[in-house]
Write a protein that binds this DNA or RNA. Structure first.
Lengths: 187, 187
DNA sequence: GGCTAAACGCAAACTCATTGCGTTTAGTGC
DNA sequence: GCACTAAACGCAATGAGTTTGCGTTTAGCC
């Protein structure tokens, strides 16, 4: 469960923001594996017990921060055609997720996540982006697959390889998945 | 890295077996989240320092045990036809992996795994099983997709949903994936 | 403005992780 | 077989991280 809906204003909000900022800063300074709760607490100007009470443990905190970082910050670009839109989106998705930091965020999001809501949020982000691309194509009069199909045929293979097979992942592979789900053999 | 190739005989082997057994027993008794290195060490009749020196930390130990548990213990069944073989394999795969304990094992295998070799091993297990099924079908004269295609079209979507979308996962979905990769609309 | 419960800080007590050192033992060569 | 070497282990001390009780602050709400 995300810890956002607890006393959204005032001190609680300041503490949450300070802790999240501390996690991001320290992760880039000392590395993600060197993070500890007392370290984050000192940087955020809080006591460790505050973090333990609100987030439970370090993994749940990192999971919260990871989901925040995995949220797309821009709408998918419009390149005039469905194939171009999907190919560009898949390429960007791959770039962000397959990088070492991206993998760390995915692992963290999957980890401290007892009920699976954080992981589900990541999936919802991708589905939302794909929904924009596909409805735009439908507005152009194109015959489009539905979001579920693209999730199964493009997102899932990319994520599976990111997590289980770090090799053989490149832009051509992503393009091929897009071409296949659109029923083409090439762009 | 798996810690199997260290002094395969005598005391070292006994310690390794005792520790692995202790992990499995305690995981089913007190739950996976309640496992600690000292707890496992006491059950196994060893000292915590032994575990720390050999496995590094709890996550790497759990990752080792998880990979061992995720290894298929039987060859995929022969049902006389490719669709039946693949459908049965996918259903069993789903049953084992989507259960709470299966999810825990997957998470553990992905986790304490700095170089990704344990996760890669899990993927290799699935590919190996699929290779048996597909080559058997080829021996019958069937026109079969290759292993990579089945990994992308069946295994990846199943695993993606197991990890990111715990809902909407059932045998009919697995059967549909198999039917689609075989170019059919049904069995 | 006052009330209530959540959120926080402080500090003690506890568990876990780490490491040096001596002992046991598996593997190897004679 | 017997000695030798280095890996593996046990023990114990040390340091770091985690948990919890209690008093204080404060956000949300009459």
């Amino acid at each position: 469960m995300s810890r956002q809906m607890v006393r959204p204003g005032g001190r609680s909000a300041r503490v949450q923001a300070a802790v999240h900022t501390a996690v991001r800063e320290l992760a880039s300074e000392v590395g993600r594996d060197a993070l500890t709760v007392p370290l984050v607490a000192r940087r955020a100007g809080v006591t460790p017990s505050t973090i333990y009470r609100r987030w439970g443990d370090l993994q749940e905190l990192l999971s919260d921060v990871a989901v925040e970082r995995l949220r797309p910050d821009t709408a998918p670009g419009d390149h005039g055609a469905l194939y171009a839109d999907l190919a560009a989106w898949a390429e960007q998705f791959l770039d962000e997720m397959a990088s070492p930091t991206g993998r760390s965020y995915i692992r963290d999001a999957l980890l401290g996540d007892p009920d699976g809501s954080n992981a589900g949020q990541c999936s919802a982000y991708a589905a939302e982006q794909l929904g924009i691309v596909l409805s735009r194509a439908a507005g152009r009069g194109d015959d489009t697959p539905d979001v579920e199909t693209v999730m199964d045929r493009v997102v899932a293979p990319l994520m599976y390889r990111i997590l289980f097979r770090p090799d053989g992942l490149d832009a051509p592979y992503a393009h091929r998945l897009v071409a296949e789900v659109l029923g083409r053999t090439g762009p």
